[in-house]
């Protein structure tokens, strides 16, 4: 499984590096969305850092949906899907590899946007730094859930519109827990209970993906 995971993750990341969709499309989209969120708050709320975590995760939700779709589009050509299927790769390894690649991409985007919240939304730098570990774990859990739901909708009619509808109920607890742990890092409330929720979600979605990805591929 580990061998296949490295193989698939390396392939997805190489394709992303070659196509530069993340660099030239997704990151600018996220930055603009964050800027617009800051403008929507207005000058009266400048320096009010309490809105930062929520807006950060709202933008990350949009970015994650784009990246999940992109992750599945790579495999979407019918000929590619068929010929890769005939390689007989271990589906658990494919899931871990795709989730890993998506995670790396979300981490890269997340760190850029986290810096954006400090610059645009005036979130405290120290708080943002303290929040980094919880952001990374939350995005890892989003990657696992997103890869699972991406496989569920891949190749179906209206996959791009169906994906957000299916994902939102699964993402909502993660986004809330992520936002709460980010707020806690800024000094608003306890930190560890929200960390626990995100970690449990990461293990649960990772385990479900390893167990179910093969079934979803076959269907």
């Amino acid at each position: 499984m580990i061998r296949v995971a490295w193989l698939v993750a390396g392939k997805d990341l190489r394709i992303e590096a070659r196509s530069r969709v993340l660099l030239w499309q997704v990151v600018p989209f996220g930055a603009i969305a964050l800027l617009l969120a800051g403008l929507a708050l207005g000058p009266a709320h400048a320096g009010d850092s309490s809105a930062g975590p929520g807006l950060f995760y709202l933008v990350m939700l949009f970015v994650a949906l784009l990246m999940i779709t992109r992750s599945q589009v790579i495999e979407a050509t019918p000929g590619t899907r068929a010929s890769v299927a005939t390689l007989g790769l271990d589906p658990a390894g494919v899931f871990v590899g795709k989730a890993l690649a998506l995670c790396v991409e979300l981490w890269a985007t997340g760190l850029v946007l986290l810096a954006g919240t400090v610059l645009v939304l005036h979130t405290a730098l120290h708080g943002a730094l303290v929040a980094v570990p919880s952001v990374l774990v939350t995005l890892a859990a989003l990657s696992c859930a997103g890869t699972l739901y991406g496989a569920m909708t891949a190749g179906g009619d209206g996959a791009t519109t169906l994906l957000p509808i299916l994902c939102l109920p699964a993402f909502a607890p993660l986004l809330i827990a992520g936002e709460r742990s980010f707020s806690a890092a800024l000094g608003h409330g306890g930190l560890w209970e929200w960390w626990a929720i995100v970690l449990v979600a990461l293990v649960a979605y990772g385990g479900l993906g390893i167990l179910l990805y093969g079934v979803l591929e076959e269907s």
Partner: peptide, 18 residues
């Protein structure tokens, strides 16, 4: 079985960006 057959589709059977 899949590991023992080779498939070539008319749409292209590989990753376009690699």
């Amino acid at each position: 079985l899949r590991r023992r057959v080779g498939w070539l589709g008319h749409e292209g059977s590989f990753y376009a960006d690699l």
